[in-house]
């Protein structure tokens, strides 16, 4: 078992004719992902990496039975691409990789997503991978291995680091979800944790947070109140000064001091979640919890 992505996931890639879209379509195919279609306005009838391209997501979903979309569309057009995927009948998962989408655009996309049953992951995220089955996004498949640890993270390369530490010790993963580093994202920590809690094959969860906002604090309370599956945590940004955006649009400690690493670490520890000081220590905690 796994969450969000499994053997039946059939992917349409929005923006498949762009450099990134094409490269990662090839990578996804190589990993074994069922990429069944691309969608690019005006490019219907073409083929990319052996995959048929349609003019609209709806056509791709209808003709190829696609049920998931990955968005590699440039920032100025990415919100519209998300709306198109949310609107398409048959699509129940949208993974938005694009970094740099204006926040107000995402507020509208988020508002629309709330009215649907479709999962939206991202934007500004590395994607979702169910090791050995499929990956939707840009995660390097070779560092993941099959197993029973779920992983949810706001950051891409930090995820790779933690996964590497887990895989090194033979701790494989059910599914890893990169939820993205933007201030407004579709799937938040609580959504991902709920999915893992309901998955019988996920025996422990790693949650990698970072400074900014209060999602980690809310997730900590959720874990304390609603989860039987044990969780270990990591929080990046302990040394970040207030008022500075640390790379991710969402990674900023406010002038008044909300969104600090300290507040997040305390919230997690107060809810029984051990927090590693180093990525290596997170793997130690998971070993203990299993």
């Amino acid at each position: 078992m796994s969450v969000l992505v499994d053997e039946d996931t059939r992917v349409v890639v929005q923006g498949i004719t762009g450099g990134e879209g094409k490269f990662h379509t090839e990578q996804m195919l190589e990993y074994g992902t069922n990429v069944v279609a691309g969608a690019v306005p005006g490019r219907g009838g073409q083929e990319v990496a052996g995959v048929p391209v349609y003019d609209t997501v709806q056509q791709a979903a209808r003709e190829e039975d696609a049920n998931a979309s990955v968005v590699f569309v440039p920032p100025a057009f990415a919100a519209d691409a998300c709306f198109e995927a949310l609107d398409a009948k048959g699509i129940d998962l949208v993974v938005a990789i694009t970094e740099g989408i204006p926040t107000q655009d995402m507020a509208r996309v988020y508002r629309k997503q709330q009215e649907t049953d479709t999962h939206l992951v991202g934007p500004n995220c590395p994607g979702v991978i169910t090791p050995g089955v499929a990956k939707l996004g840009i995660l390097p498949g070779n560092i993941f291995s099959e197993g029973n640890v779920g992983l949810v993270s706001r950051s891409g390369t930090l995820t790779y680091q933690v996964v590497d530490n887990l895989t090194d010790r033979g701790l494989g993963q059910t599914t890893a979800i990169g939820i993205g580093g933007d201030p407004i994202i579709g799937t938040d920590f609580i959504d991902a944790l709920e999915l893992f809690e309901a998955d019988p094959d996920t025996h422990a969860v790693v949650m990698c947070g970072e400074i900014g906002g209060e999602d980690e604090e809310e997730a900590a309370r959720f874990i304390g109140q609603n989860m039987d599956t044990p969780v270990a945590g990591f929080i990046a940004g302990r040394t970040a000064p207030p008022g500075k955006r640390m790379g991710h649009a969402g990674a900023i400690v406010s002038g008044s001091g909300t969104g600090t690493a300290e507040s997040k670490i305390n919230a997690l520890e107060n809810n029984g979640v051990p927090v590693g000081d180093t990525p290596e220590e997170v793997a130690d905690h998971i070993e203990d919890l299993l």
Binding site: L158, E210, F234
Partner: peptide
């Protein structure tokens, strides 16, 4: 990657 760079800063401090 923002998260990994922040983590590197934190480890320098650690």
């Amino acid at each position: 990657g923002a998260g990994l760079v922040m983590t590197t800063l934190d480890l320098v401090d650690y």
